[in-house]
Design a protein around this nucleic acid. Structure first.
Lengths: 144, 144
DNA sequence: ATTGTTGCAAATATTTTGCATCAAT
DNA sequence: ATTGATGCAAAATATTTGCAACAAT
């Protein structure tokens, strides 16, 4: 593991981190901004976005819908899964059959545990596409 | 099933549908727009967005990253899954342990089948949150 | 001094919407 | 005639970035 923790834990960054951690409701950037501004009225939106990025890249928090904030469309309406490149946002079909057995059981259980009406699931494999793999190897080469 | 197919399969809509179907690469809206414009130079971006919505809501295509085009952040960096409300975009943790056994096997298989470097997966259960369930029941009530 | 960070504002990027016109019943 | 769809442009949303000032080595 490489410990490139170059960033400073500034007051702003700490408050942003606390606000993300102090709720289970998966806030959006503007919601975080609103909460942080209650404590630091002069904080800027740019600072919030920048710090969310930094915190995520250093593993303090996680970005949902990572990568590119852009919708994509799929002509194939059959149930199937995707592999997503975390670097370039590329999406491919995963050459795998749906896990209906194991996961549909989970859907029913969750329908009871939560008060959600659940009617499907989405499974995405996260990785680097062949092109981005090559790209990375230029930098992280030679360590068997 | 309710057959509220009120939309007309206009020429534009058909071309848009064909372009989404004629590729496996999960195009974004602007990519679809570019391709459609080669065949219908006077088509507008608005028409493309409107038709993608309609086609998705009628089941001809699928929207990936459905719902709200907004990133969300999670203070919990442990592996866990989410339930997402398709109506309001709400995200909650799924009260389920990660499926490491079954799915991590898949990750390895996919790493061989494709040339991706795979290092994780994301499983999301799709449904309606309690609030949106109630909302819907107002309309689709009384059919046991 | 150097380097990372901030606030602010401007710029991008993405998606949605109002509206007059057009097309198909 | 009525209703849904279109093109165009403007608006709304969401995110990123340039830059001068600031803070911490």
């Amino acid at each position: 593991m490489n410990s490139s923790r170059i960033s400073r834990m500034t007051h702003q960054r700490k408050v942003i981190l606390e606000e993300v951690r102090n709720t289970h409701s998966h806030l959006s950037a503007d919601e975080i901004y609103a909460r942080v501004r209650k404590r630091l009225p002069r904080v800027s939106l740019g600072t919030v976005y920048r710090n969310l990025d930094i915190l995520a890249s250093e593993g303090f928090i996680r970005k949902l819908e990572p990568g590119h904030p852009q919708m994509r469309f799929d002509g194939n309406t059959e149930d199937h899964y995707h592999i997503i490149c975390i670097n370039c946002g590329n999406v491919e079909d995963a050459p795998t059959a749906p896990l209906d057995d194991s996961v549909e059981g989970l859907e029913k259980i969750l329908g009871n545990l939560t008060r959600y009406g659940i009617f499907g699931h989405r499974l995405e494999f996260i990785g680097l596409c062949p092109a981005c793999m090559e790209e990375k190897e230029k930098y992280f080469d030679t360590e068997t």
